[in-house]
Simulated scan of single mutants.
Amino acid sequence: MTPAARVQTAIEILDAIAAAAREGGAPADAIFAEAMRARRYAGSKDRRAIRGHVYDAIRLVRSAPVSGRAAMLALAEVQSELAPLFDGSAYGPAPIAPGEARAETGLAAPALLDLFDPLVGESEHDAMLARAPLDLRANRINAARDDLAALFPEGEAISGAPDGWRLPAETAAVQHPAYAEGRFEVQDAASQYASAALDAAPGQAIVDLCAGGGGKTLAIASLTGNAADILACDTNRARLQQLAPRAERAGVTRIATRLLNPGQEGAMLADWQGRADRVFVDAPCSGSGTWRRSPELRWRLTPARLDRHLADQAKLLDIGADLVAPDGKLLYAVCSIIAREGRAQVDDFLNRNPGWTADTGYLPVGLGRTAGAGFLLTPAHDRCDGFFLARLTSPC
């Protein structure tokens, strides 16, 4: 492909990504992969170049653009080598017209910035869109961080995460035989901190209420040495089905799964009411803390979608609370930097559940900042995804 054809292809892919963002369609990675399958003539250099154009534009443009062309024109203003490629050639984009509109750039639209937790100032903005490193978590059942250091000497230890090892972005770690052997998982440092904050111990009964594909479930199993009984739940069958093969690879044998019907979660967990020592509520959210990895999430968030997340979070907190044994603990976590999903959500829970208390001091020293009754992790301050955590203790 010519350089101009690569730009035109990026424009077409950006059109599809912007439309999916507005309509709640497939994520950007899936759209890109499908576009490349439809263009099998594109070589590896073509794919890398096109992907670079697409994601550079997504990171630059603050909200879903009116067109992929408007996004690429904005990118051409900061990457001057792109402008001459709008040359009107056979497979390239049309020449740039005088005064042609460019997409607006920046971290996010002002209305979205206003929702950020007060701790998230402008000093965080660049880090929130910087490319994230690849973080690994050693599986304690059959490995240790020192093993990862030997396997990947180009990495570094993750501060505050005793099993964590950090590698440069795009490292092909999962292609290493040690991954197939279950010696490590790919997991951002923030998720490792959250899993450890649950304070799980061998012999406990634990519920992961929103387990998804089981990343944090497996981390909890690792931290307890495969010696705790864990129930992993979710309403998404496809995601929950990913857990069994992952657990087998990791050598984890004490995880049970339960598919829940939306709206019937409480009834379907009646046998667990009041008996869980620990409950993890990793609730669905805006994902605003993960923009480093999925920058198009900025294009997807609308007031209506946020309201749905807030309602789901409140419901899941109440369901999780009903499962906790007296003096047990519930960890609420969202990969969000929006105050209404974090500190405000927990304040509301404590107000409607007298007797529950918020714990303190469960993060390693120097990590996170106090945000109401919980803690906020942010990319610039903590070198990890944005996460809000609150650990709550039930009345005796």
Rank of each mutant, 00 (worst) to 15 (best):
G68S: 02
D126T: 10
H309P: 05
L82S: 06
R369D: 01
S63D: 14
A250K: 04
D359V: 11
I31S: 00
P3S: 10
A157I: 09
A211D: 05
G266H: 14
E296V: 12
T224C: 11
Q204C: 02
L129R: 13
R391N: 03
A103V: 05
A173F: 09
A314T: 12
F349N: 02
A169E: 12
L243H: 05
A130G: 04
H381Y: 06
L323G: 01
F184Q: 00
D146S: 13
W356I: 11
A344Y: 08
A49Y: 14
T290S: 02
R246C: 08
A127K: 03
A49P: 06
Q242D: 05
D15G: 01
G182A: 04
R183Y: 07
I13Y: 02
A205S: 12
S159P: 06
Q242G: 12
A111I: 07
D277N: 09
A132R: 06
L231P: 00
L218V: 06
D327V: 05
A127P: 02
T290Q: 02
L240M: 08
E34C: 02
M72Q: 13
V207Q: 02
Q273C: 13
G68F: 06
Q8W: 07
Q241S: 13
Q313H: 04
T393L: 07
T253C: 02
F86Y: 09
E181W: 05
C396H: 10
L198P: 01
S394G: 09
H53N: 15
R183V: 07
V252T: 09
A42Q: 14
A35L: 15
Q187P: 08
D327N: 15
I220S: 04
Q8G: 06
C384G: 00
T302N: 08
D318P: 00
P3Y: 06
S195A: 15
S195D: 01
V54C: 02
A90H: 12
V61Y: 05
A247H: 07
K329I: 14
A196E: 11
V186Q: 03
A16M: 14
A333P: 00
G263Y: 02
V334F: 05
L223K: 05
L350S: 09
Q175T: 14
T302V: 11
G160L: 04
T257F: 08
G361W: 12
A169Y: 12
R137Y: 08
A178M: 03
L260H: 03
D322C: 03
V252L: 04
N351V: 09
A64N: 10
G342S: 03
A228Q: 10
R305H: 13
N351W: 10
A109N: 07
M268I: 05
I17S: 03
G266R: 13
L223I: 13
A390Y: 00
A83I: 14
L198Y: 00
G155H: 11
P118C: 06
A190T: 12
P303M: 02
L223N: 08
C285F: 01
A238T: 15
H176Q: 06
L119M: 05
R246F: 09
I337S: 00
S222I: 10
A197R: 06
I141G: 00
A101N: 08
D312V: 11
D146P: 05
G43P: 13
L331S: 02
L240E: 03
A76L: 08
R145H: 08
G251S: 06
L113K: 07
F387K: 07
I206A: 00
P364H: 14
V281I: 15
D15A: 07
L85N: 05
A256I: 05
